[in-house]
Amino acid sequence: MTAAYIILGISLVAFGAMAVTALVWAARAGQFENFKAGSESIFDSGEPIGEPTDLFPDVDRAKLAAVASRAAKGAARP
């Protein structure tokens, strides 16, 4: 019973400390700087921009390209 409370207390303190450590580490390691690079880090240099990487197996790519360029124009208008 008492042992359970001790485990509970230790685990709460330990996990709080770990969260703080992780936050401090992230700040020191520069994870909160240069957000642009961070957001692009999932793309490799060889990947083109704005090109879908997943499609239904029956999609006509020519039609899709037309739709995409229309959408891009529409987004650019306002």
Binding site: A37, P48, G50, K73, A75
Partner: peptide, 10 residues
């Protein structure tokens, strides 16, 4: 596409 792309800051 690249022309239309406005570089986002993240």
């Amino acid at each position: 596409l690249r022309e239309k792309f406005d570089p986002r800051e993240g």
